[in-house]
Design a protein around this nucleic acid. Structure first.
Lengths: 140, 140
DNA sequence: GATAAGAATTGGACTCTGTCTAACTCCGGC
DNA sequence: GCCGGAGTTAGACAGAGTCCAATTCTTATC
């Protein structure tokens, strides 16, 4: 788990630690994701980053989010057709998605298991697997 | 589970049984889904239905798939950003989705369980919940 | 601190999935 | 067979995401 220092200077170090050149835009995007600690869509990230002055383009937000996903800094959560969310929490966990309200709730990874996965200890869902449970009512 | 007679005449009866007026287009769409018994996207359904002569519009395919989902004839499977798949198998089950190959594999519903769902017998995932497990390698 | 070369960013056009609409056609009860 | 409502249609539209060539920034090296 990441520490909780979300200063620009610290975020720059975090990016360097993941082999990412810390540009202004990338730092702002990282700041948006980590300081909110919420599941954000690319659109929401774009809006937050440009709240005061428009300074980051759509292309950069998409490029950067893709880069962050590839380097394991955030996770992609695909719950909705036509909208991907980005989750700054990379601890092993899964997601409930309420179809009706659009709400996303975390589930402890240890609580989800699948029988018949002989190569996994106790049938637990392996790290790297992304379990998304779509429900019709809030179940959290 | 549905029977395996995929003749137009029988599909018309199946549609009527679900309260759906069996038009030519709807029968063709049902035929595409059930005779292949595969997870198809709206685009694929459109292509299959119009293989010989263009006779069904995009709007009708979308309308019909939505109608089929609402009446429980097929299920929506949301595994990929920007593409929804439709599954003619409505038996309770869940899905593995291989991010790299795009392959979708079924999992027996009984094999997936979540701890900490007190209102559900034995922590089993409830009917109506749609569990999608996104993996990086084929795990089936 | 200046320089240079590659990396990052940009805006805008573009693609793709899916929606909407208003006119037209078909289905089924009478 | 007629009629009214249900179903279908083409094409315009919307929103998320991609692409590209031109520009700007970062950083290693001096």
């Amino acid at each position: 788990m990441m520490n909780t220092d979300y200063s620009r200077a610290n975020l720059a170090e975090v990016l360097r630690g993941h082999g990412i050149t810390p540009t202004h835009q990338r730092i702002e995007i990282a700041h948006a994701l980590f300081s909110k600690m919420a599941h954000l869509s690319a659109d929401q990230v774009l809006a937050i980053v440009n709240e005061r002055h428009a300074e980051t383009s759509k292309a950069t937000v998409y490029n950067t989010l893709k880069l962050f996903v590839e380097s394991g800094l955030v996770r992609e959560v695909i719950v909705d057709p036509s909208k991907v969310f980005f989750d700054p929490n990379t601890d092993p966990h899964h997601h409930f998605y309420d179809i009706e309200t659009g709400e996303i709730t975390d589930i402890d990874a240890a609580k989800v298991s699948i029988a018949g996965l002989p190569d996994l200890p106790a049938g637990k869902v392996a790290a790297g697997m992304d379990v998304i449970i779509r429900v019709k009512r809030a179940t959290a």
